[in-house]
Design a protein around this nucleic acid. Sequence first.
DNA 1: GTAATTATCGTCATGTTGACAATAAAGCGA
DNA 2: TCGCTTTATTGTCAACATGACGATAATTAC
Lengths: 257, 257
Amino acid sequence: MTIITYYCFMPASHPAPERFPVTVDVVALTVRDGELHVLLITRLIEPFRGRLALPGGFVLAGEDLLEAAVRELAEETGVEHLPGHLEQLGSYGPKGRDPRGDVLTVAHLLLAPDFPVLSAGSDAEQAAWYPVRDVLDGKLELAFDHARILDDALERAKSKLEYSPLGAAFCDEEFTIAQLRSVYEAVWGTRLDARNFHRKATGTPGFLEDTGRMTTGDAGRPAALFRLALEARPTPGQPTRAVLNPPLMRPRAVDPR
Amino acid sequence: MTIITYYCFMPASHPAPERFPVTVDVVALTVRDGELHVLLITRLIEPFRGRLALPGGFVLAGEDLLEAAVRELAEETGVEHLPGHLEQLGSYGPKGRDPRGDVLTVAHLLLAPDFPVLSAGSDAEQAAWYPVRDVLDGKLELAFDHARILDDALERAKSKLEYSPLGAAFCDEEFTIAQLRSVYEAVWGTRLDARNFHRKATGTPGFLEDTGRMTTGDAGRPAALFRLALEARPTPGQPTRAVLNPPLMRPRAVDPR
DNA sequence: GTAATTATCGTCATGTTGACAATAAAGCGA
DNA sequence: TCGCTTTATTGTCAACATGACGATAATTAC
């Protein structure tokens, strides 16, 4: 054991505020073979050694939250420039969620196309994609309160698809309507009518842009390739403007008077 | 100046994680005289002494975030049991948002009926309601990054009204359709057609419940008093189930085959 | 070539919306 | 008491969106 000492200079009239270790965790979701998958690491140290957990780690001095999330994700997957859309999900704690003491964690959500995770060395925590279903079914157990964070992430992802163009964050740069539909089906856990989905996706102004190219080589009729329209592209870390969904009661002004 | 020393016992093989002071801030919104107001305090200490700021303060040992937000709000308004709906908004920092050093803040959002703020003693920070418009217009300047947090809170509040029954969180237990409409108008900054709003509000299943009572004494025809239906009542701190809004593309399954 | 597969377009009944007319039920002032 | 004003509530209608599903197009598989 080592004794580590912090010095903190404060005006004597005010008590020193409590300081907390802060971690970032990332719920990285992707759609693989039509099924939703989440990126998990196998913990190599206590607590929860050997248990699956969300990738993440401590925020370092001088870092912002999003930076820390990007760094941790890069470290644990070996992927330099990560694809997809990253946003903050919410904060948990600090009370009673880590047996080592009070740790605040800021969870993040990454919606990404299926990217390959690089093998870590033998002494590094190995990240890999796991079917979300296996976690929900209890086949896989997560460390800490990560199951709850995953639940919240899934809820957020579902509603993001309803109200924003972020379904496309699961796709590559160019994609077909069917690929996009399979994202919706995987995240929502439903089957959707291909014809109505096509009408809706192509008919929503400011959502998709036809690239003019087509798929080749697949079974069946070739499909047109689309990309996200410029105005629908998410700014990393920024709240996404809803483009897809005119909801029921909308801020629509009546003639003032 | 006093030197405060922390001791932290850690396994020598791992470096001590950075620790950050963590604050909670609350964006408390209400509708007063048809206009959106936000609760602000006048800072009595540096930094930003004399400047307006969101109510908030440091998270204490053994506290959870929501607890801390409730405690700070109670301390700064003198209100014991706070009305309305409180939820987490998001976290900011820790880099470069406080001149004293890196401080992480977890912002919260309170949607509440117009409650009176108790006068603080002369040496306490005085909380009061201010028109949101004055902040947006630049007539009032906020400390730290609180203007940005307020922006995010307003965005969140607007979308909450679209997708959830939380507009009623601004009203008293029982309210008229016109009172509810004035909430929507204030938050969205628009005027809405009273007849269509009435149809929509009363016609949405699981939203409102007729109390059978009527208003008396106001000008014009008396209005029926409603309350939130049981299934639409928010659980404090819990994500709210959207009741109001069937959005355009919804998880609706097609006959599986 | 024929079948199977997938993509895309079209049709139609139903439901929701926005605009706005009409009516109901109170207070107010003459 | 009788209009007049004010606000609440009901109703109507055209335009549009949705869900269900038929039909057609353009490929690959055999």
